[in-house]
């Protein structure tokens, strides 16, 4: 891949400042059959999430008498990247992400209310440009609220990282692949507990502190966008069919 100058004169290669998020658009309730859904555009990421449940847990031996099982399936479409046509079906990467995203919502969903049931979260990345797991968490939280699944809190997530010795927020694919470090963080909105944390690359403790500072500010903004998306659907009288507004 062609090398680009990732950071120059206080600006990143795409013109953003260190603490600037890419453009984020969230729309709640975009599907008609799913119990809850959301569509999210984040830079060139385009992600759709559908939620079903609580429903019967199949296979039954996975059910728990103590609460609902949260099943997440994160899926990259074969046409999601600028590069070659991919394969469909789960990869090792998508299985890992499914697990860590699922665990985020195991934390906030009031699972104990629905013993032996399952709650399913389907994440489909229609187009990916870095930061899809964070986008997925942010969209899934809206879809779960749309489904009415009881949650102790809303969750949003953002990546922070390091390019050209500078800590920056929300790395896109180019920054992620050519930069020095990338760290995905999901926060519970109310108490700011960390629910997802995956980092690779190299950062100092001071870098990490700066990263959390930037991420906390971005989290407030993302939560605001989630609130607006949900308000949009429910404050206005909602007539007509739901649709994905790509």
């Amino acid at each position: 891949m062609e090398e680009v100058e990732l950071f120059k004169n206080g600006k990143r290669y795409d013109g953003r400042t260190v603490e600037e998020l890419r453009h984020v658009k969230i729309k709640a309730h975009v599907l008609n059959d799913a119990d809850g859904s959301a569509y999210l555009e984040w830079g060139n990421n385009k992600i759709i999430v559908g939620v079903y449940g609580p429903k019967e847990c199949i296979p039954r031996h996975l059910a728990s008498p103590y609460g609902a099982v949260v099943k997440c399936i994160y899926n990259m479409s074969p046409f999601s990247s600028l590069g070659e046509h991919g394969r469909s079906g789960p990869s090792r990467r998508s299985r890992e992400l499914s697990m860590v995203i699922g665990q985020v919502f195991e934390n906030v969903i009031e699972r104990e209310k629905f013993p032996k049931a399952a709650i399913e979260i389907f994440v489909d990345v229609l187009q990916g440009d870095g930061g899809t797991r964070c986008a997925a968490v942010t969209a899934a939280s809206v879809a779960l609220a749309d489904a009415g699944i009881p949650m102790k809190d809303m969750v949003s997530a953002v990546a922070v990282g390091k390019v050209k010795d500078t800590v920056v927020i929300d790395l896109d694919y180019v920054e992620d692949s050519q930069g020095q470090a990338d760290c995905a963080i999901a926060f519970a909105n109310r108490n700011k507990e960390v629910l997802l944390l995956q980092m690779e690359g190299e950062m100092s403790k001071e870098d990490m502190q700066k990263a959390f500072e930037l991420a906390s500010i971005a989290q407030e903004r993302l939560h605001q966008l989630q609130v607006e998306a949900l308000k949009e659907v429910y404050m206005h009288i909602n007539e007509g069919d739901a649709f994905v507004d790509i």
């Binding site: 779960l144 609220a145 009881p150 949650m151 102790k152 809303m154 519970a188 109310r190 949900l230 429910y234």
Partner: peptide, 10 residues
């Protein structure tokens, strides 16, 4: 008074 919208976690 206008209704206030409540989110999970409010």
């Amino acid at each position: 008074m206008e209704d206030e919208i409540i989110m999970p976690g409010t």
